[in-house]
């Protein structure tokens, strides 16, 4: 049962990931990305990491992607030109590189006999809220706080840049 769910979710994740890149319509790409994030959340659930799965949905699918959608709708981004209109040597090199990387991934996956690992009760405990918070607020407290500061700095920086432009425009007029 779990294996079938895994195959379904994995295929969905890969198919939507391809769809994001190949789709010409930006809004469709965003929706496919949401589907991709949801299927990855499903994979986390299969590994008994409930907390990670739910956080994935709250933050990525629920918050960040809504903002993506918002920006695309407001800016009215035009459809991208097709990648394959003109043949260039760069695309050929990129294609070869992709084939090499893909082959490597397939080779390394070939060694794994079973798709899903056996999940012991101790492993299932690692994914709970209590376990995650305990590690986060004891062993990794400083990296955690540093990340928070970094993110705040990024937000303030973005606001400053945006405000700066507005003020300059006003002075010009």
């Amino acid at each position: 049962m779990a294996t079938y769910a895994f195959v379904l979710l994995a295929v969905l994740a890969i198919a939507t990931a391809l769809g994001i890149v190949l789709n010409k319509n930006t809004v469709n790409s965003v929706l496919l990305l949401v589907l991709n994030l949801l299927s990855v959340a499903g994979l986390y659930l299969l590994l008994q990491a409930q907390f990670l799965a739910i956080i994935q949905v709250v933050i990525y699918a629920g918050a960040i992607m809504v903002l993506f959608l918002f920006v695309i709708m407001l800016l009215n981004v035009d459809d991208e030109e097709s990648l394959f209109d003109k043949f260039r040597i760069r695309y050929l090199l990129a294609f070869l590189l992709v084939v090499v990387v893909f082959g490597q991934i397939l080779y390394s996956l070939g060694g794994v006999a079973e798709m899903l690992p056996e999940i012991s009760p101790e492993m299932a405990q690692v994914g709970t809220v209590e376990a995650v918070s305990e590690v986060m607020y004891t062993n990794y407290l400083i990296p955690f706080e540093m990340t928070a500061i970094l993110l705040t700095a990024a937000v303030v920086g973005a606001l400053l840049i945006a405000q700066f432009k507005i003020k300059k425009d006003e002075e010009d007029e």
Binding site: Q50, F51, I54, V57, V58, A61, G62, V66, V129
Partner: peptide, 16 residues
């Protein structure tokens, strides 16, 4: 075990 977060996650998807 993270039911409250699940509620928030589901609510945030409703926006779409």
């Amino acid at each position: 075990n993270a039911g409250v977060l699940y509620l928030l996650a589901v609510a945030s998807l409703g926006v779409y």
